[in-house]
Simulated scan of single mutants.
Amino acid sequence: MVGAGDAGQPVGELAARLLGDPARAAVVQAHGGLWLGRERVLDAARPAPEGELLTISQPPDGRYAQAAITPEQVLYEDADLIVIDKPAGAYVEATPWDVGGHLLAAVGQLLARRDGAAPPLHLAHRLDRDTSGALVFSKNPEVNPRLQATFAHGEAHKQYLCRCQGAPAQDAYDLSTGHGRGAKGRFRVYPAEEVGRELPQGGGTVKAMRTRLEVLRRDGDSALVRALPATGRTHQIRLHMAHAGHPLLGDTKYGGPAAWRDQPLPYHLLHAELLRMPHPRTGQPLEIAAAPVWWG
């Protein structure tokens, strides 16, 4: 909280004093990691008002991600849409600590280099930082309402590939549970009968979460599984695989191993391999396949 003695001081100077490192503070500010209340501050000279909360946001691992997209990573494009093959380890949009190192900006930069200017891009859906595969952006604001409705109402068929620890006993099965935040704000699985229950401390309600899982191949220490989510909950496939006793390789957050066959895994092995959806303007069916992954 900005006290009376610091009121009116430039935000950048306050951050440098709090961090004890002016050079580090300049890096944080350049990436958009300074906040007054709920507003990102991009001007280091802006005076800090008394009583406002100054937040300094930095990458959890101390490193700023780099995001770049090449023409070869474009899976589909027309006047309304562009679909890219998202690399693992890339954020899809701005984070509290970085206003620019993400794929929304990278796609805009690619189109600006090619066409001289970038259209107004909009994310149709999201993938976790470490999930790879087909990611859809709109290029035309006129199709945004229809595109958003396609994903919100389950009209987009999403197919994922993952590699999990161990081998599920059944060749195919359906999981139907609840989904919500736990006591510490982390997403977790709830029993299906708790769907609709109010969660404490403004955590919303328990939502339904449904996934079909199909085992494609068992490889002794792991299995290759196709996941077909019927709902679109945050971390859905990761949560359901862990709930089934077979967390994703590399998904240490939900109990998965950090290495596979003596090789460290910098990210979890989950890939959005196929997307089927109606075109938001014409209604014609689109089928977009991402490139194969090395672990598949």
Rank of each mutant, 00 (worst) to 15 (best):
residue 1 M to L: 12
residue 4 A to S: 13
residue 8 G to P: 05
residue 9 Q to Y: 06
residue 10 P to N: 07
residue 11 V to C: 06
residue 11 V to N: 06
residue 14 L to M: 08
residue 18 L to K: 13
residue 28 V to I: 11
residue 30 A to M: 07
residue 31 H to C: 02
residue 35 W to V: 05
residue 35 W to C: 05
residue 37 G to T: 03
residue 37 G to S: 03
residue 37 G to W: 01
residue 42 L to C: 01
residue 44 A to W: 11
residue 44 A to S: 15
residue 45 A to F: 04
residue 48 A to V: 09
residue 53 L to A: 14
residue 55 T to L: 14
residue 58 Q to F: 03
residue 58 Q to L: 14
residue 61 D to H: 06
residue 63 R to Y: 05
residue 65 A to E: 14
residue 66 Q to R: 15
residue 66 Q to M: 01
residue 67 A to E: 09
residue 67 A to S: 12
residue 68 A to K: 08
residue 71 P to L: 05
residue 71 P to E: 12
residue 78 D to I: 14
residue 79 A to D: 15
residue 80 D to Y: 02
residue 81 L to R: 01
residue 82 I to E: 00
residue 82 I to L: 13
residue 102 H to I: 11
residue 106 A to G: 04
residue 107 V to R: 03
residue 113 R to E: 15
residue 116 G to P: 13
residue 126 R to E: 03
residue 126 R to Y: 09
residue 128 D to C: 02
residue 128 D to Q: 01
residue 133 G to Q: 10
residue 134 A to F: 01
residue 135 L to H: 02
residue 135 L to A: 03
residue 136 V to K: 00
residue 138 S to I: 04
residue 140 N to C: 10
residue 141 P to D: 08
residue 147 L to F: 12
residue 150 T to Y: 00
residue 152 A to N: 04
residue 153 H to N: 14
residue 154 G to Q: 00
residue 154 G to D: 09
residue 165 Q to M: 13
residue 169 A to F: 02
residue 173 Y to I: 00
residue 176 S to W: 06
residue 182 G to R: 06
residue 182 G to F: 03
residue 186 R to N: 09
residue 189 V to K: 03
residue 191 P to D: 08
residue 191 P to H: 06
residue 192 A to S: 13
residue 192 A to I: 06
residue 197 R to P: 11
residue 200 P to F: 12
residue 207 K to A: 15
residue 210 R to H: 15
residue 212 R to F: 03
residue 215 V to W: 00
residue 217 R to F: 04
residue 217 R to N: 05
residue 217 R to M: 02
residue 226 R to C: 09
residue 226 R to G: 08
residue 227 A to D: 00
residue 228 L to N: 03
residue 233 R to D: 02
residue 238 R to V: 10
residue 239 L to P: 04
residue 248 L to T: 05
residue 249 L to Q: 07
residue 257 P to D: 09
residue 257 P to F: 02
residue 257 P to G: 02
residue 260 W to Q: 11
residue 262 D to M: 03
residue 263 Q to H: 12
residue 263 Q to T: 13
residue 264 P to S: 00
residue 272 A to P: 04
residue 274 L to G: 04
residue 274 L to P: 04
residue 276 R to Y: 07
residue 277 M to T: 06
residue 278 P to N: 10
residue 282 T to M: 11
residue 284 Q to N: 07
residue 285 P to T: 04
residue 293 V to L: 04
